[in-house]
Structure formats: C-alpha cells, structure tokens
Simulated assay, not measured.
Amino acid sequence: MLCKENENVRPQIAKAPKTDLEWEVEAVLAWHDENPRAAISTLLLDCQHLRRQLALAAGASGIGFTRGWTPTYERPE
C-alpha cells in the first residue's frame, strides 16, 4: 500500500536570489505593460540620448579638466 507523501518533509529546492539586473529587467517590462518591443525601443532611445550627451560633455571639457581621461562610447566586455 502506498502512503501519501507529506509535503512538509519534502526537500525544498532553493532558488537563487535575483540579481539587480534581473530586477531592473522586470521593472522595465512592467513599466511597458510586458511589451518587450516597447521596452527595447525606449532603452535604445535612452542609449542614443546618453551618447549625444556624452559627446557634448566630451567636447566641452578640456584635457586638463579630466586629467587626460577621455570617454569611450562602447562599453567594455
């Protein structure tokens, strides 16, 4: 005869906690009503805007002000 398994003694598989990036992805999708195309479009437009702002800031600040540092437009891998 088989006994019914007690759920209280079944081992629970621990899920890894979400990273900050995973929370941010969920927040972006929630903001766009779970529409991934709208989320991607907004993020690309934000990226484009920030690149323009970086170009303006790089042109406005002299080498002495930044002690030789120059911005990069591509993120390191």
Rank of each mutant, 00 (worst) to 15 (best):
W31D: 07
P17Y: 02
E77P: 03
C3T: 10
R67S: 10
R51S: 08
P71K: 02
T19M: 04
T72Y: 05
L2N: 13
E34P: 00
R52I: 11
R75S: 09
G68H: 06
N35G: 00
Y73N: 03
L29N: 01
E74K: 11
Y73M: 06
M1C: 10
Y73H: 01
S41R: 07
G59W: 00
A38D: 05
A55C: 07
K15P: 02
D46R: 13
T66L: 05
P76Y: 02
N6E: 14
R10E: 13
C3E: 15
G62I: 03
V28H: 01
E22M: 09
L45I: 09
T72L: 07
E77S: 08
G68E: 06
I13G: 04
G68C: 10
A39D: 01
I63F: 09
A60I: 02
R75L: 10
V28K: 02
P76I: 05
W31K: 12
A38G: 04
I40R: 06
K18Q: 13
L50E: 09
T66G: 00
L2Y: 09
E34W: 13
Q53R: 10
N8P: 03
T66S: 10
E74M: 10
K4H: 10
P71Y: 02
T19C: 08
P71F: 03
N8A: 15
L29H: 01
T72P: 00
E26D: 12
D33I: 01
E34H: 14
L45C: 11
P76A: 07
C47S: 11
L2F: 14
K4I: 15
L21M: 08
E77K: 09
R10D: 13
A55V: 09
W69C: 05
M1A: 13
P76R: 10
G68K: 04
S61F: 01
E7S: 15
G64N: 15
R51T: 06
P17F: 06
R52K: 14
E7A: 15
R52M: 08
L56G: 07
S41E: 15
A16Q: 13
A27P: 01
G68I: 07
E22Q: 14
A38S: 11
V28M: 06
I63H: 03
M1S: 13
